[in-house]
Design a protein around this nucleic acid. Sequence first.
RNA 1: GCCGAAGUGGCGGAACUGGCAGACGCACGCGACUCAAAAUCGCGCGAGGUCACCCCUCAUGUGGGUUCGAUUCCCACCUUCGGCACCA
Length: 848
Amino acid sequence: MVSGETTAYVPQVIEPKWQAIWEERRQYAASERSDKQKFYLLEMLPYPSGDLHVGHARNYTLGDVVARFQRMRGYNVLHPMGWDAFGLPAEVAAIARGLHPREWTDANIANMRSQIRKLGTSYDWSREINSSAPEYYRWTQWLFLLMHRKGLAYKAQAWLNWCPLEQTILANEQAEGGVCWRCGSVVERRLLNQWFLKITDYADKLLEGLDALDEWPERVKTMQRNWIGRSAGVACSFPVEGLDANIEVFTTRIDTIFGVTYLALAPEHPLVERLVDGSAQAAPVRAFVSALKDKSELERASLRKEGVFTGRLARNPFGGQPVPIWITNYVLVEYGTGAVMGVPAHDERDFEFARDAALPMKPVIVPASGDANTSPAPVSRKGLPETAFCDDGILTNSGAFSGMSSAQAREAMRSKLEQLGAGRSSVKYKLRDWLVSRERYWGAPIPMVLCPNDGYVPVPEEQLPVLLPDQAPISGTQGSPLAHVPEFMHTTCPKCGGPATREAETLDTFMCSSWYYLRYLSPRDDGVPWDLREAERWAPVDHYIGGIEHAVLHLMYARFFYKVLNEERLVPGDEPFMRLFNQGMVLGENHEKMSKSRGNTIAIDDAVATYGADALRLFEMFAGPPGSDFPWSTTGISGATRTLKRIWRLVLAHALDLAAGSSTVRANGKRLSAPEAALRHSVHTKIKKIGEEIAGRMHLNTCVADLMTLLNDIEAFVAASPQEPPDAAAAGASSPVLEEALETLLLLLAPFAPHITEELWQRTGHSRSIHEERWPAYDERWLKQDLVSIVIQVNGIRRGAIEMPHAADEESIFVAAATVPTVKAQLQGKQVRKRVYVKDRLLNIVVS
RNA sequence: GCCGAAGUGGCGGAACUGGCAGACGCACGCGACUCAAAAUCGCGCGAGGUCACCCCUCAUGUGGGUUCGAUUCCCACCUUCGGCACCA
């Protein structure tokens, strides 16, 4: 259909039409055989919660622009989509509405898939995955068994985070700051026997790996570093008097050990009972411990620091002074050894506690003389320090170590402790092992069997998947629903063949999402989780787009998985995501967060129906840089629509010329007119800028601005051209430069507005899809202009500008500048002291 | 409290390495077209002075500094938003 007729731009007609055609052609499938370079582009796997709003549309459009751009640049692009389909909200919905979790989940997926398609996204839908399908979770279970085989999965009793609202246990990462990551409830502490993955074995690798991720945002790396929380120090033993026991403490400040005036133990420290059993202190200590038992981490943190004396003394390994042992509310059992040496003179927390408990303080560090940054702690009238001095300094009152610097003393004391057999170097992490079992229904069953004879036995691989039974009583309050399904629970031991029971818990859904990017590589393979050759071809992900909320959740778990898989030689390299991009949010029109509860969400369907996908996409890319938030704006999107309508009319007005194919002869030697040269300059600078921006910094808002500028330039060129003769419909009547500009405009716009550009490309006589065309190349010659505008400053203030030939010499610019009246006026009666010239840009004349 | 990011017209934002501050768009005003409206097109649009014109002064959170020249670099402060918060 080649026609000069100006039909109306109706996105509601052309968008569904092209979406159907692309789908029919399977146009966006990644090719399995290709000598093109690969590009693996991925957006974080969405949870199928129901409706998508324009904030999600922004995220998917961002990825789609990059995918389409990279295809045009000649890459073999893998751009898949799938569903993180297991998870608690499905169970909540099941309880609330009487729907089966699968029903609820599948309905949401169908709805969201249709919404995402309506945006015109170029996913390879043939690779779609669903983590709740047995064909998928079979491999999640397989990976659990792999971890188990490597000794990385174990069951143990530990203090865990319990969300009282959701009635579930949470991994530490999922209870950051003492609150549930999903619902925000303050978590409680429970002592439970559960499955863990030994992510702590990989703490150093996870930490070191961050250094190589130079295309990750610094803040994400900082958050992971803080979460891992590596701390190098010394573990040091204090023998308990009158008891055959030692109390081991961990400290990074062994140099302050002569300042120890007490030992502080966590209430849950295993030695507490032995210390007080049979003594008069037993009653008060037990009362103190039981009062704290149910207090959450968050509650404890807000308490005034308190403690109770055990009546026991320990001996300082240096010098042998007796040290009272206290039970306190500020020492965490989970970290280090659950016991600390109290040095009130040099630690804020110990100071706070000791001041209130009236325990002595013994300063043993003084600021190094000449260190201007530190000063000794002020001393009160009673001679007690008023604050703790926590910096490094010079040791005093420290026996043979007095006079050493803190750093020297740490080294000397460590080696002395080693000689005495009372201590050694030690590294501790804030990171704890990943709790992966959940007493919930809607997840992958843990593939383990408990046999009375053989203990826990892994389900043999060939028996996978351990199918989730269709029906189980989901109450949310009675422990694992699977435990109430006898036909699921009763099984035989894979080892001895005797009767045994299955593990009733399911796996944390973060396990499903820790490896999904590999399943996309061979999504229908039922012999392996992924084909090794496919992994060699595609992994790692080149460009990963997702929200900052997963900085230490999904992103750290996935890195952990990948490192384990790398050891097994199942993946190339040891980091899964080379470049990470965190997109910003779309806020409500009044700058508030867009959320269902506020009722200010704008659904993708509605926005597409009203404005069209292309206008929605263009506006969302234009409204601000993709890493920042911006407010939704109904008038703003009308600007995008206007732009698209202008392009529609402009291109159709020249459709016949374009269809005549004069573009093939456009690179003729004919000398261009000044307006033609200016237009071509504009075209080629836009090609360069937009391409570099998408591949680099990704400030796509400036790309859209550049496209609008190009449109303005073309329109101005057309308006300034002599009226075409009445028979202008004759093909080839317009300037080749204009035709090049129009085609380039469409090509550059194609990743942003795929439907309108496809329609116009076809209407201007092209048979191939615009999305299969090559990204235009720019010509260096046209980036330069013959005449350049040079700003003239006097003493750094702009006083005019002159047009000069490109690369003119400074002297002639100065001479020309001096004749500009406003410059001349400023130079009047002054002495020129200096000239600063920036080539082709600016001349600053400095006068006295 | 600690760490990080950011403060630019009425609004969203641009200026990527120190070189014309406010690109591009929205809103608004005036005009054209129209019986009229919508749509569309043209012009204007930081503040103040002068206002016929050119032009001048001020202006990128505040105050200093470096520089011929600072939205950009340095110091201090204010505000906002994130993250962490007894991790010994």
